[in-house]
Design a protein around this nucleic acid. Structure first.
Length: 800
RNA sequence: GCCUAGGUGGCGGAAUGGUAGACGCAAGGGACUUAAAAUCCCUCGGGGGCAACUCCAUGUCGGUUCGAGUCCGAUCCUGGGCACCA
């Protein structure tokens, strides 16, 4: 009798009471396998029914790899800093340290209830000073290498609340809480120079076993584009400005230029008559958040600056405008406008009645022509296509000293500081002379001070600015200094946790170099696609930096990446409290069992697809477990035999082993499970059951359903755990079928199916086909023009 | 608008260019049972036909091929991401 509660409790206790269970042995003789989950943020809601999906997948692979003789590292930890933890603490009026620890304990218990083969001796948490000591250490190294700097950058500031808000706390320009207006305001921030790594981050995407779409997203995010930077002189002043263009070939068609509202030259160049209009336009632009500025679709606004630029290619004077469709943060913050061949410029020119000069043949009566065509009105480039014209004009600009080829990136530097309490303190002090200095390594970790008031306060200053004087004003090299009061973002801790898992208790380094060289890179990383750019790009950036300073020896952290889909509600919508379709995993474990939950989530569909929750499907999974269980513990037990005499069972068993071995590797669990179901169905039909087949099945089964698997293994008479048994192998001979069915087609339509031996010749099959009563009518009074025979599959007779 | 992944029974989904619908769920029938549940077995895309059988079917329209869910070209729809990127 399958009693999930009894069985799961029994084996949970067995694993938990044995501290070395699933611990990797640092055995360098064995091949290694590092299976990593995106570690969870331990929210107050507890585990979601979506969490087990990815975790089960890495768990199945880990269990299979152990059986295949690998030394497996399969750890788990907690991404426990950050805004949501802080807000949860504020809401529950409990210090984040306390509430977060509680949530972690809850999460851990829930994950353990799911039977994950996790090495808990490697457990880490980003909020442990022993851990964030090394997060701070990495920051210090970045600082030393000029990759961390301070800048004034615009943030979302809400004057009413007096705090800086995260993007997700701002909705339509209003604060999420209270609905107060939010403005973009420059504030002193720590930045990390990820742009220095843009080129390598782009290049090294090549060769990663990652989903194509994720690689594409990172490529687009980095946004490499090559073009030309052109210098435009301003008429009647010594000033000049640069624009970046990917379409230098259209330079003869440039009829005006636009500066972003942030452009530093505006105050210097603005004409007396235009001053009022320009200033009020700048004021308006400031009020617009990036979101607002970019969502004002179609309508292109802007005002004339009252200054003129000289087109370096032909000396023509063209007006300069200020327009907020030009972004200060990309390129040079200025563009040359070619309305005939750029749609945005086209719309702006129409709205402001600016001239157009067509420089490529094509129709521009209703929209800009952006395709390739021979150039016109372009002097030396006339008659040439885009590529050739680019080369010609670039050459001329370079000769004139007015242009150079450059590579531009969309990627911006990483805003690394937060005006929050619940994050790693930035290990920096401000000296009296205004310079910043990092703490010495032996002063790390710089721990968070105890604060009564950790909530953001109305003056907009970080909570740490209210820390006790002893913390805030330490003595540094004999001088009384002020500590940095910003903290790090949640991304910081999650940038390198996969490194710490390898050697989590090391006091002298992030991790032992020899161990890092052994375990890295991560062999399989599973997590949601929502991290396709931010986390996965930041972590790659840090990893490359650590590579440069000799901490790690491989260039990329995650060799293979996979995104699991979402578990949707039964109504096919995203699970959420407000939709009332949330399923609680604790309840499922209680009523139906962790094994059923694991099996259901793996069988419901491809791992990467979103799939709806289904209570019927869960019951179906449970039925399969019971059915498998009864093969070993029930009436079917009597059929057990030490030899096999069923060819069908041989075939089905070995097919299953082959299918599971291959499909587990490619994470196609749904089809692997279906082959296991076929095997079990065949067992019920079989007269005898061959014991080694039952054992082989149980080994594979135990990867998906570890509790039931262990129990079945012991019912088969073993007193050792199944976890370190040897993975079953298949015999190719058993996969050769004695009879195969050949579909006989006439002109592509199936008319009969004949059974032959797999080695049957074309002539043999053809003669069977001609004898077939079902085929004959279609051949009557026709000639066979052609015969296509695919052994083991079909024969197609083409007649006319 | 751009990028990206998809559209297959009542449902979740299978299918190296080779018999579309594996496997599961739901449904129906049968066996067992005093009965129910559980279990085991069978049926199960649609139309037509008593039946043998036959026609239609993988969003839509074309194309390539002996043969297309699969490849190519259009087109419609859905999900995810990005969004004035010069």
């Amino acid at each position: 009798m399958y009693d999930h509660k009894k069985i799961e409790e029994k084996w949970r206790k067995y694993w938990e009471s044995n501290q070395t269970f699933y611990c990797d042995t640092h055995d360098f003789q064995k091949p290694k396998f590092y299976a990593l989950d995106m570690f969870p943020f331990p929210s107050g809601q507890g585990l979601h029914v979506g969490h087990p999906e990815g975790y089960t997948a890495t768990d199945i692979i880990s269990r299979m790899k152990r059986m295949q003789g690998y030394n497996v590292l399969h750890p788990m930890g907690w991404d426990a800093f950050g805004l949501p933890a802080e807000q949860y603490a504020i809401e529950h009026n409990e210090h984040p340290e306390i509430s977060t620890r509680k949530n972690i304990a809850h999460f851990k218990k829930q994950i353990q209830a799911l039977g994950m083969s996790i090495d808990w001796s490697k457990e880490i948490s980003t909020i442990d000073p022993d851990y964030y000591k090394w997060t701070q250490w990495i920051f210090c190294r970045l600082f030393e290498h000029d990759l961390a700097y301070v800048a004034d950058v615009p943030v979302n500031f809400c004057p009413e609340l007096g705090t800086v808000l995260a993007n997700e706390e701002v909705i339509d320009g209003k604060s999420e809480r209270g609905g107060y207006p939010v403005i973009r305001m420059p504030m002193r921030q720590w930045m990390l120079k990820i742009t220095s790594y843009a080129d390598r981050l782009e290049k090294d995407l090549e060769g990663l076993n990652w989903p194509k779409s994720t690689i594409e997203m990172q490529r687009n995010w980095i946004g490499k584009s090559s073009g030309v930077e052109i210098t435009f002189k301003v008429k009647g002043s010594g000033e000049s400005f640069r624009v970046f263009t990917t379409r230098v070939d259209t330079l003869y068609g440039c009829t005006y230029c636009c500066l972003a509202p942030e452009h530093p030259l505006i105050p210097l160049l603005v004409g007396e008559n235009e001053k009022k209009d320009v200033l009020s336009y700048l004021e308006e632009a400031k009020k617009k958040s990036d979101l607002l500025r970019t969502s004002l679709s179609k309508e292109k606004t802007g005002v004339p600056l009252g200054a003129y630029a000289i087109n370096p290619i032909n000396g023509k004077e063209i007006p300069i405008y200020v327009a907020d469709y030009v972004l200060g943060s990309y390129g040079t913050g200025a563009v040359m406008a070619v309305p005939a061949h750029d749609q945005r410029d086209y719309e702006f020119a129409k709205a402001h009645h600016l001239p157009m000069i067509q420089v490529l043949e094509g129709d521009i009566s209703s929209a800009a022509f952006e395709g390739d065509a021979p150039h016109i009105h372009s002097e030396e480039a006339n008659g040439k296509g885009i590529a050739e014209a680019k080369a010609i004009i670039t050459k001329k600009l370079v000769a004139l000293g007015a242009g150079k080829e450059v590579i531009n990136y969309k990627l911006r530097d990483w805003l690394f500081s937060r005006q929050r309490y619940w994050g790693e303190p930035i290990p920096v002090v401000q000296k009296k002379d205004g310079t910043s200095a990092i703490l010495k390594d032996d002063e790390l970790p710089l721990t968070l001070p105890e604060l009564d008031q950790y909530a953001p306060t109305k003056d907009g200053k970080p909570p740490l600015s209210k820390a006790p004087d002893a913390w805030l004003h330490p003595v540094y090299e004999g001088e009384k200094v002020t500590r940095e009061t910003n903290t790090m973002p949640q991304w910081a801790g999650s940038c390198w946790y996969y490194i710490r898992y390898i050697d989590p208790h090391n006091k002298n380094a992030l991790a032992d170099k020899k161990l890092l060289d052994h375990w890295l890179p991560v062999d399989l990383y599973i997590g949601g696609q929502e991290h396709a750019v931010l986390h996965l790009l930041y972590a790659r950036f840090w990893h490359k930096f650590l590579y440069d300073i000799g901490v790690v020896s491989c260039k990329e952290p995650f060799q293979r990446l996979f995104h699991q889909g979402m578990i949707l509600g039964a109504n096919n919508e995203k699970m959420s409290k407000s939709r009332g379709n949330v399923v609680n995993p604790d309840e499922i474990v209680e009523t139906t069992g962790a094994d059923s939950l694991r099996l259901f989530e793996m069988f419901a569909g491809p791992l990467s697809d979103s799939k709806p929750w289904s209570t019927e499907g869960l019951n179906g999974a449970r039925r399969f477990i019971e059915r498998s269980f009864r093969l070993i513990d029930g009436e079917e037990e009597k059929k057990r035999h030490s030899h096999t005499n069923s060819h069908e069972l041989d075939y089905v068993y070995h097919s299953m082993v082959k299918k599971c071995t291959e499909d587990f590797e490619s994470l196609d669990f749904n089809t692997a499970i279906s082959s296991m179901m076929v095997f079990v169905n065949e067992c019920y039909k079989a007269k005898t059951l061959y014991v080694p087949y039952l054992e082989g099945f149980t080994k594979i089964f135990s990867c998906i359903c570890p509790f039931a698997g262990e129990e079945m293994w012991s019912l088969l008479g073993h007193d050792q755990t199944i976890a370190y048994e040897t993975w079953p192998t298949y015999e190719s001979d058993a996969l050769i079928q004695r009879k195969v069915k050949i579909a006989i087609q006439v002109n592509g339509k199936v008319r009969d199916v004949v059974e032959v031996s797999p080695s049957a010749t074309e002539e043999e099959v053809k003669s069977l086909a001609f004898q077939s009563e079902k085929v004959k009518p279609y051949l009557a009074e026709k000639t066979v023009r052609k015969c296509i025979y695919v052994p083991g599959k079909i024969m197609n007779l083409v007649v006319a």
